[in-house]
């Protein structure tokens, strides 16, 4: 029962000479949203890519519902983990509905055409994300924000156990940021789990159950947002002086003030 939906144990990833992740331990419990934050280049996207096995790990284990991701076929893995990438390559005029239907792919046979049930799931996913009106539009015509919503809908249609989102709100206006996060909330309320990479710490604090800060390839701090997001950790991880206020519910509100003196954002500085 207490087994996490997704767990990282001592995960290390190397790209050539450079160690990107150096022993990450992190749990995403069932029914929870975990926000992963950290400076640019800290290895956040790498962690998501390792979990979806598009890059190899050097050591450590990543388990989804107790199963080692390295032992699952890609198809089985895609039934367990859905990824919302930062953006998609678009070369051909697929319609939004067709792209969302692609989320059903891991559940179809080789020569499969989508069944009525798949079409229904895709329609529901589009409705959940609020893009039903875009269904017939070509992906080539959409704005960056709209494309991001389509990718979220595709991941919802995939009906996996775990959702990995890589800065899903980066191109979105305020309203759509809140909308996407409420879609994720709905997903975990139905028994899913989510790991969200985000730079919006205040929104993360309000919307997620816990926050993990990644610095120099390790998790520097993780836990309840109010415990993790403090002026000290922010200086350590991002190299900024920031005020942490609290809203009426007690959730932290991060207001950056200036670059920390001396700057400590460089990786060598906070490696220890």
């Amino acid at each position: 029962m207490t087994q996490p939906a997704l767990s990282f144990r001592d995960v290390a990833v190397r790209a050539g000479e450079r160690e990107i992740l150096r022993g990450v331990d992190l749990d995403v419990p069932v029914g929870k949203i975990v926000t992963l934050a950290g400076a640019n280049g800290a290895g956040k996207t790498t962690l998501l890519r390792a979990a979806s096995r598009v890059i190899a790990t050097e050591r450590g284990a990543i388990r989804v519902a107790g199963e080692d991701v390295a032992r699952l076929s890609r198809r089985r893995l895609a039934q367990q983990i859905a990824v919302v990438p930062q953006d998609a390559a678009i070369s051909f005029p697929f319609r939004v509905e067709e792209v969302v239907l692609m989320g059903r792919s891991p559940h179809l046979g080789v020569f499969g055409f989508e069944a009525a049930a798949d079409v229904e799931k895709a329609a529901l996913a589009m409705e959940t994300v609020g893009i039903t009106h875009l269904a017939d539009r070509s992906l080539l015509e959409l704005s960056g924000g709209e494309r991001q919503l389509v990718l979220v809908a595709r991941a919802i249609a995939q009906a996996a156990r775990v959702l990995l989102l890589d800065e899903p709100t980066a191109h979105l206006d305020l309203r759509h940021r809140v909308a996407v996060l409420s879609v994720v909330k709905g997903f975990v309320a139905r028994g899913g789990s989510a790991l969200v990479v985000s730079h919006d710490l205040t929104l993360a604090a309000r919307q997620s159950h816990s926050v993990a800060l990644l610095a120099a390839g390790r998790i520097l701090a993780s836990g309840a947002p109010a415990d993790v997001l403090t002026p000290d950790t922010l200086r350590e991880v991002f190299g900024v002086e920031a005020d942490v206020l609290h809203d009426a519910d007690g959730a932290p509100v991060v207001v950056p003030r200036s670059i920390a003196q001396p700057p400590r954002g460089d990786r060598a500085g906070n490696a220890g």
Partner: peptide
């Protein structure tokens, strides 16, 4: 056509 990584992540 939507990217190699994305295709892998869809199985």
């Amino acid at each position: 056509t939507l990217g190699e990584e994305s295709a892998q992540q869809l199985g």
